[in-house]
Amino acid sequence: MAVNQALLREAQATGPTKVPVARPRLPSAEAVFPYLQRIDDAGWYSNFGPLLTEFEARLAGRFPAGTEVVTVTNATQALTLTLMAMNLPVGGYVVMPAWTFVATAHAVVQAGLKPWFADVDPDSWMLRPEAVTGLAADIRAQVVAVIPVSAFGAAGDLAAWRAFRDETGVPVLVDAAAAFDTLDDADLPAVVSLHATKVLGIGEGGFLATRDAALALRVRQLTTFGFQGGRESHVAATNAKLSEYPAAVGLASLDAWPADRFRFLRAAQQLRISLIGRPEVQFQNGWGADWVTSVCAVGLPDGMAAPVADALHQQGIDTRQWWGAGCHTSPAFADCARGDLRHTDRLAGSVIGLPFSIDLSAAETGRITDALQQALAGL
């Protein structure tokens, strides 16, 4: 009895189990095993084997006919190598939103280019073509490309960006890292992440989807030592290809995707319904109804992100500012050029990531909702 009382006192002291902000989940060993057996049977472990070929074909099948898919070790490398494959003038500006994850800017710098941080639309949280066309003429003259970012998995207005590309001739590369579910058009080249934290993950990985066969071929060449059907390097490149093993995980993930997508939708709807009486908690348009992603980023009244996060943490509810105060605030990019970022600064103080996962339970949803309501009421 004394032991039980000690355990009870310990539980009371430590409080309830924390609700994590994310709970990534990859296919089970049982689901992956048949694909591992295929690897064993073929004795082909890397260098564009049958599983990777099938994985890329199945990914391409999610897009209109004529789409090429090139897998890469991660989405950051995919962005970098695609920018390099575009043969852009070295040192030119790439306009990108300040409201994004730092990987976008790292890719620009690694490709020998310079980020120009622009502000985003306050409602969609994404870059609009007007942010580029409205730049001063001397800056526009130095812009060699634009990278709009799909905010937390939202699709964005790709039609507007296609029109921008066609009217200006400026190349557009979409950072669709979290947009596996929403991206269904590759007329603009787009990069998707397959990181373990995404709705469809393989651990580490990413892919380029494009209808530009020549661009796809150049990116492929850059992922494999500059080879082009032989053993001679035709261009300076790297080794960024996937092996058969992540392809095995990817195939198992695709097998489960229809059911997994439904489970993500169900978890999202559960959370949305529980907060239906809190209009000050703003979900992204269509999140959990029309599309799914692996995180739940919500907008709060201006300046409320930090105090609400502190209040939630005190109740064991983990949160995250996924993009911090904006990419431009990282020391690595302190010297990068930028415009007026008033909307980005406001979003940095009002957007937080609530706990969300494919297996978010009703009990966890209740705890999140109760804690959030108490936090908002007390501020």
Rank of each mutant, 00 (worst) to 15 (best):
A2D: 15
N4G: 09
N4D: 14
P16H: 13
P16L: 15
V19E: 06
V19F: 05
V21T: 04
V21A: 09
L26G: 01
P27V: 00
S28R: 07
A29Y: 01
E30A: 15
L36A: 11
Q37G: 11
I39H: 09
D41K: 13
G43A: 13
S46R: 12
F48L: 09
T53R: 13
E56H: 03
R58Y: 07
A65G: 07
T67Y: 02
V70S: 01
N74L: 05
Q77C: 10
L81C: 05
A85R: 13
A85V: 13
M86F: 06
L88P: 10
L88V: 12
G91W: 13
G91M: 11
P97W: 05
V102N: 12
V108W: 05
K114W: 05
W116N: 00
W116M: 04
D119P: 04
V120S: 04
V120D: 03
S124Q: 03
W125R: 06
R128E: 08
E130C: 02
L135I: 06
A136I: 07
D138G: 07
A141R: 11
Q142I: 05
A145K: 08
V146D: 07
A151T: 12
A160M: 06
T168N: 12
L173M: 11
V174C: 09
V174I: 15
D175G: 12
A176N: 10
A186G: 03
P189Y: 12
H195F: 02
K198D: 11
V199E: 08
G201W: 00
I202W: 00
F207M: 02
A209Y: 03
D212F: 12
A213V: 06
A214L: 07
A216V: 10
L222P: 01
F227A: 08
G229V: 13
G230R: 09
H234M: 08
A236I: 04
N239I: 09
G250A: 05
S253V: 00
A256F: 01
A256R: 11
P258G: 10
R261P: 05
L275N: 08
R278V: 14
R278I: 10
R278Q: 14
P279D: 02
E280H: 10
Q282Y: 04
G288I: 05
A289K: 07
W291H: 03
C296G: 12
V298W: 00
D302R: 15
M304A: 15
P307W: 14
P307T: 14
A309Y: 01
A311Q: 06
L312P: 02
G324V: 09
A325M: 05
G326M: 04
T329P: 04
D335P: 04
G339E: 02
T344D: 06
D345E: 15
R346I: 08
L347I: 10
L347F: 12
L347R: 14
G349L: 03
I352N: 01
L354Y: 11
P355L: 01
E364G: 06
T365Y: 03
I368V: 14
Q373E: 11
G378A: 14
